[in-house]
């Protein structure tokens, strides 16, 4: 009984996370709620962007989950503006995962009228590496880059740019003071990602956000609302699925 045997396993370590993510995506989509996973380095303007987009939504009702390592400042800030924001603290972990979102969604109240659409914005932990590797049940992965970080970001963090469904270049009000090389930046983006729309925005002046809000509302309107059935349905809103 002490012989050593080899067992062929061939199992993905992330299978359980991905399975829960798929459930969240399907479940919320069926209820008319589009999930937007917002990622970007610390200070790129993730919270500023949420506020700007939410102000410009025409039809969809906004909800927010703020991921933060330990503080709840952004959540308090959003709540004070009358935005329904909920907090997840990861206490050290550098990304949100699908089970965290699944639990939080259970606590939240998505009181939508018949056929009304919602958009659940999830501000991920400020980090360009780990959040790109963990799907949390989003329909849309929204990447925030800035002109202040330099034009080489796609070359340094290729996975984030590859996986993004929409890319925002924020802080364009600062372009006159910087040497942001947009051509080099876009060459990198397009090598990695042929389809994601790229919007230039400014959290300071508000430019560009009306277009972003309209694009997201288009995605929300395209959700296939139906009676929730248990089990895991089709995959039609699930882009960039890597296994």
């Amino acid at each position: 009984m002490h012989d050593i045997r080899k067992l062929n396993v061939m199992e993905n370590v992330m299978d359980e996370n991905d399975h829960i993510a798929e459930h969240v995506r399907e479940h919320m989509g069926a209820h008319g709620v589009l999930i937007v996973n917002e990622m970007g380095a610390p200070g790129v303007g993730k919270t500023t962007t949420l506020k700007n987009i939410i102000e410009r939504l025409q039809i969809a009702k906004p909800f927010v989950i703020e991921g933060d390592i330990e503080s709840d400042l952004d959540t308090k800030d959003l709540n004070s503006l009358g935005i329904a924001a909920y907090q997840i603290n990861t206490f050290g972990a550098c990304h949100l995962d699908a089970p965290m979102i699944d639990h939080k969604i259970d606590e939240m109240d998505f009181d939508l009228e018949d056929k009304e659409r919602g958009i659940l914005f999830i501000e991920n932990i400020g980090n360009l590496v780990c959040p790109a590797e963990f799907t949390i049940g989003e329909h849309v992965l929204m990447l925030i880059a800035t002109v202040t970080e330099g034009s080489d970001k796609p070359y340094k963090y290729p996975l984030a740019f590859e996986k993004a469904d929409i890319i925002l270049i924020n802080k364009v009000d600062l372009i006159p003071y910087l040497d942001f090389d947009e051509e080099f930046f876009m060459k990198g983006v397009r090598a990695l990602n042929k389809t994601a729309p790229v919007f230039k925005v400014s959290g300071k002046t508000g430019e560009g956000y009306a277009e972003v809000a309209a694009w997201l509302e288009g995605r929300a309107a395209a959700l296939d609302i139906h009676e929730h059935h248990h089990g895991h349905g089709d995959d039609e809103h699930h882009h960039h699925h890597h296994e």
Binding site: D3, K6, N8, V9, M10, N12, V13, M14
Partner: peptide
């Protein structure tokens, strides 16, 4: 990111 094989006894 997967577990290829394990050895057991």
């Amino acid at each position: 990111f997967y577990i290829e094989e394990i050895e057991v006894e």
